[in-house]
Design a binder for these strands. Sequence first.
RNA 1: GCGCCCGUAGCUCAGUUGGAUAGAGCGUCUGGCUACGAACCAGAAGGUCGGAAGUUCGAAUCUUUCCGGGCGCACCA
Length: 655
Amino acid sequence: MRDGYYDKVFHVLESRIQAAFAAFVKARYGSEVAVATEQPKQSSFGELALPIAFQLARQLKKAPKAIAAEIVEGIGAVEGVAAMEIAGNGYINVRLDRGVYGRLLLGGVAQAAAAKPGKIIVEHTNINPNKAAHIGHLRNSVLGDTFVRALRACGNTVEVQNYIDNTGVQVADVVVGFHFLEKKSVTEVRGLIGGARFDYVCWELYARISSYYKDHPEAIEWRKRTLHEIEEGHGEIAEMGHVVADAIVECHLKTMRRLGITYDVLPRESEILHLKFWATAFEQLKERKAIYLEAEGKNKGCWVMPGAHFGGSEEAEDSKVIVRSNGTVTYVGKDIAYQLWKFGLLGKDFYYRVLKTYEDGHRIWVSTTAPGDGSPAFGHGAEVFNVIDSRQSYLQDVVVAGLQQLGYREQADKSIHFSYEMVALSPRTCVELGIELSEEDKQRPYVEVSGRKGLGVKADDLIDKLIENAQREVDSRNPERPEAERRKVAEAIATGALRYVLLKFTRNTVIAFDFQEALSFTGESGPYVQYAAVRAGKILRKVEERGEALPDFERALPDEAMARQLAGEDFWQLLLSASKAGSAIERSVASGEPSHIARYAFQLAQDFSNFYAKYPVVDEQDEEKRALLLWMTQYFRRQLEYTLGVLGIAVPEYM
RNA sequence: GCGCCCGUAGCUCAGUUGGAUAGAGCGUCUGGCUACGAACCAGAAGGUCGGAAGUUCGAAUCUUUCCGGGCGCACCA
């Protein structure tokens, strides 16, 4: 299905019913209420429940049940509705006309989704380019990528940015490791890149230099010097900084590509500095008096933003340093400049060059300091989502406060911290990884990871392990298939499993990552959902293998036949459920909660698995019923594949 | 100390703007493969939604308070 188009039959009927009720209530009671609809508690109650009588009860001072009765009696026929009933204390339950509904689905009422005007910018991933990506980074990227897919599915124009902090402390630390600890030259470091897993080498080195600082506090001088030279941009150390960061970015892109994640543009901090983005933002902030030069106290000599601007108090200790007393700008300061640029408010732009082009023609652009080949227009977003973990909400508040203080109220409101809780490790998994735990930690539900200490699950290790696991199963179930093909299937399963475990939790749930759980492909998992789609595909293929063509469903299932076949609950519930994919995605976008799509996909897969076990499709003797079964199978398969696509999960041919 | 988040079945989690008898997965127990391949299906057991008070026709959901846990509150990012 094309982006922005999907079945909206349910949606259309729902709107029609709401409009009919609103019109009747206005005519009868002269009151204008927003007609809410709910899903009935039990499917046997019908397809829609309207609590409107409760809403009116207060105004009319009448029993809800009596009002409901008046409405049901007076409203008359609504197209597509078979019956209305009063239930409970005053619910109005609506039963749809199943025949009409089925025929509408069969005819394919695809309507354009309600896209928001303007471009939406989503920034995600944003990993310090100094070490391998780990499981926590994956949650960020998978959440961001899925949200992007959902936004696009709803017809929105989306730009994906991945900010690269290539001049920060973390990169500097690895350079310190190479230069001062290991006494390596730029050429030697370059030599390492060609070798295996440069990001793993840096992962170890970063942990090593971090602990070295602890034992040798004087080594902090190395960091200061390195940081300074990287910011200046000249000399061997600065060059090494670029070499390391560029190589690690390449590693990250490769890792994310394995999960189907990509970007449109990589704005880099080095360009923010060299193109004087900060200087411009600084002038604006000073001019609008959003920040001031602190004359006394612990922040003396710093440019600070008063705490009152971002939820703190007027006390000086609550204010946030934007420019240090030595004149250098903090990360938040640069982030304010970056955020201004995202909205097109800075009055400056980057130059760009193509960093790489994938086989499908997709290009990733990266910021650069010199004018180059014609690039698309980046930035100028109408709305911005920053996918950043919840521990940084304080800093995000400061950034938003910056926009507000500059008078950009509207943009401040559209500057959204798409936050999520961290990924920690289950104690059991820590033990497996050889991480020593205190007795106290063993009792906790989870243990926080630490990049500085080199503790954590590296993304590529995890993906490798998942593929290995899937491969064993695929090989034993499909020994006759070619090896290269089996490998692809194993990769799809591994990706599906990983993306699903990261998506099934709501954003503000801390994930206690557990190897055993992630490697389990049963129950509420990606492979379970994939399996349902694979089985549907197999049924359809089986028919083909027998040399039959699928029936012409339009002809085989006219109105009466459709109504007859959908009279039973099993078929009707599956069809209804499958037709709500678009609603699930829209709801997910509206609430900013990708897990809703994952849960919907699982629910749908469950419905189909039940259907699959209960009704043999291929051998059905009744012609009309067989046509319905085949059509439902095809429809289910299409809807599930579409939904999984939004989750970034592919459906293999077999499993 | 201040701010944000979380306490729902043995475990891990869902629960739409307050709505009908609080739901899944895992685990446990019982059944189901001559295959549209069981990475599956059916069934059972399992809950004073952390405690208390309040708001109202109605609260897991909103308010207050207490208890228990997590994360922030750098001239790091």
